[in-house]
Nucleic acid binder design. Structure first.
Length: 315
DNA sequence: AATGCGGGGTT
DNA sequence: AACCCAGCATT
């Protein structure tokens, strides 16, 4: 498997946090990259570093500003975790091992290993979606998700390249992202195909074996847009609701009783949301009235922002 | 080990 | 519409 490192050196993407493997940069990048594609993250990362260039500036920022910088990335709890962790780091200093990293909110087994191997050179293995797929094909693993993950972690630990764990981990993930892709893997370009059981069988695309998908749930929600004198009513979603902590128009469960101005559809994990937009005259009881021309600076989920642009166009 | 958490882009 | 993405936390 030594060919992998040479391949990585010659073919890896030049990412900001690789050019500057500072703990702050690597940590933020790992948080943004959770369940999110690299290409999506890049513009958010640049904007973030321009505004919050250090852990001290992050700790001093308001959660509203952090959420606004996060707007559009999804899984907004990550933004809250980062903000909370920044205050811990500002008070206690940087973690000095993967084990310490994993004590911070939002940092689990994968992220702690990624950060520690990259910034500290600590010999800790990791498995993400890429490594899991690489492992599944290399070994033609017939197992579904739970067993596959367990086996992949064991494999990663046994095969960690001790002299340079950070570069090795990056190389495994990069191989999964660029060559050992989910669909149409580029096996002819693979530096380790000589070791690949699925390639030998000619069935690379059959791995990893698909597991049962959760049933999609359809939900109707009514979005009440109250406008008055150039202002609009917003509510901040509480814990336990969709888009916790972000600003939205008042939301009721169910279909509207009046005719909707339009409908915005959004997919949230395995939920399919239909957001019916209704214009309302009377003022809501419990809301913040925001100037319409300041709305762009408010942290709103992407579907809500789409709903607002429909109101501006047709309302 | 299995869910819940509750987004977004790509094909 | 399905699929996947540098997962985490809780049970």
């Amino acid at each position: 498997m030594k060919q992998l490192l040479a391949w990585y050196d010659a073919n890896h993407r030049s990412l900001p946090w690789r050019l500057n493997p500072d703990p702050y940069w690597v940590w933020i990048s790992e948080m943004m990259c959770q369940q999110t594609q690299i290409a999506t993250v890049l513009p958010y990362f640049e904007r973030w570093m321009a505004r919050l260039p250090s852990v001290e500036s992050l700790a001093a920022a308001s959660i509203d500003e952090v959420l606004a910088l996060w707007q559009g990335l999804g899984y907004y709890r990550r933004a809250r975790s980062i903000h909370a962790a920044a205050n811990l780091i500002a008070a206690q200093g940087w973690p000095s091992s993967a084990k310490e990293w994993a004590l911070l909110p939002g940092v689990g087994r994968y992220s702690s290993a990624a950060i520690a191997s990259t910034t500290l050179g600590e010999p800790v293995a990791l498995v993400d979606g890429n490594v899991e797929r690489v492992f599944a094909r290399l070994t033609a693993c017939p197992e579904g998700k739970p067993a596959l993950q367990r086996l992949a972690w064991t494999w990663a630990e046994e095969n960690l390249h001790q002299p340079d764990p950070g570069r090795w981990n990056q190389a495994l993930m990069e191989l999964g992202a660029l060559v050992c892709r989910p669909k149409t893997p580029l096996c002819d370009e693979c530096p380790v195909r000589a070791h690949c059981r699925a390639y030998a069988l000619g069935t690379s695309e059959a791995f990893p074996v698909a597991s049962a998908k959760p049933e999609t749930i359809s939900l109707d929600l009514t979005l009440s847009v109250h406008r008055l004198n150039g202002k609009v009513a917003l509510v901040q979603q509480p814990e336990g609701e969709w888009w916790t902590g972000l600003w939205t128009f008042p939301i009721q469960k169910g279909s509207p009783t009046q005719k909707a101005l339009g409908t915005v559809r959004a997919q949230v994990t395995h939920h399919k949301l239909s957001l019916h937009i209704c214009l309302v005259d009377e003022s809501p009881s419990d809301a913040r009235w925001a100037e319409e021309n300041e709305l762009h600076a408010v942290a709103m989920p992407a579907p809500i922002r789409r709903a607002w642009s429909i109101v501006l166009r047709d309302g």
